[in-house]
């Protein structure tokens, strides 16, 4: 038997790896979207639709990776819908996002009914902990390939946003639409692209939920993770690599509640279960300052329209 502290730490490590991936994907997707000056609050709906699509397609084709791809495509469709609607003048992107969230969740639940019972083939994890004696550590280090895909995507995005022409265009559109127009860039076109990419990422995040962890499809599957992930982008100050950190932190903190109860710290579990929220808030308060609060925020991003 290992010591309680070790068990909790192992659980947090495992939690960071297991729970963080959907947050990471949604946050990265939203990060790209918001970099171009557009908000898509509807990624909760995209996440759920992605989860359902991935599960259904994996069930029918027998290939979970085809399911992941299909989830990405379904997410892109919702993203493109959001992007093209918000491209119209006078349309409020925050509000459309909330409506799209209802729509996406509704569509997913409606078409997802027949897939609650069956068991679909799930994504295989990579056993990275086989060197370890501890079964707990071995299990914590069962890592899904999508986790690495997410991290790789974050590095790629961070690099591309900083160093490529594509990144320059996205950032310009996000910081000043007028400047972008002067450069001859189609502002709506760029935002349509970034919203579609954002939808793709969120859809893949959903695929992780239904095909890896917790790895089944039902209506309560997401319960707000998409909304939280969108909020984490603000926490991550619109930086892809920070999105990864925020997701890891959130995942690790989410493991605190259950694992503390498992080692016998049972009083006040509501607060331990709320640890991700409390921790995020505390870190936000500690790291913010009144002076340069909006320094990293894309200039076109005015949520309060």
């Amino acid at each position: 038997m290992e010591s309680p502290v070790v068990i909790v730490l192992e659980a947090m490590l495992g939690g960071a790896i297991r729970v963080s991936t959907p947050f990471m994907f949604v946050a990265l997707g939203e990060c790209v979207t918001e970099k171009s000056g557009r908000v898509n609050l509807g990624l909760e709906g995209t996440l759920v639709l992605g989860a359902m699509t991935a599960y259904a397609i994996s069930f029918h084709t027998g290939s979970p990776w085809v399911g992941v791809l299909a989830a990405g495509v379904a997410g892109s469709v919702l993203g493109a819908m959001h992007g093209s609607i918000c491209g119209l003048p006078k349309v409020n992107d925050v509000a459309v996002g909330i409506a799209m969230m209802l729509f996406g969740v509704g569509v997913a639940f409606f078409f997802g009914k027949p897939y609650i019972q069956p068991v679909a083939p799930r994504l295989q994890s990579i056993p990275l902990g086989s060197w370890s004696e501890s079964p707990n550590l071995r299990s914590a280090l069962e890592v899904n390939p999508l986790f690495f895909v997410g991290i790789a995507a974050a590095f790629a995005l961070a690099w591309a946003l900083r160093n490529t022409r594509w990144g320059l265009v996205v950032r310009t559109v996000g910081d000043s639409a007028a400047a972008a127009r002067a450069m001859g860039v189609s502002v709506n076109g760029v935002r349509l692209m970034t919203t579609t990419i954002g939808g793709f990422f969120a859809g893949v995040g959903g695929a992780f939920l239904s095909l890896s962890y917790p790895g089944s499809w039902n209506q309560g599957l997401s319960s707000g993770q998409g909304l939280m992930a969108v909020a984490l982008v603000i926490f991550a100050r619109w930086k892809p690599l920070r999105c990864v950190l925020a997701a890891l932190l959130f995942g690790a903190a989410g493991a605190i509640g259950p694992s503390l109860q498992a080692v016998g710290v049972t009083q006040g579990y509501y607060f331990f279960n709320a640890a991700p929220y409390i921790l995020t808030l505390v870190i936000m308060i500690a790291t913010s300052s009144a002076k340069h609060s909006a320094a990293d925020m894309p200039g076109e991003l005015s949520m309060a329209k």
């Binding site: 939280m228 909020a231 936000m284 913010s288 609060s293």
Partner: peptide
């Protein structure tokens, strides 16, 4: 503190 109110209120 410049803490974003959207995420703070959700948390």
């Amino acid at each position: 503190r410049g803490v974003n109110e959207t995420i703070a209120s959700l948390l």
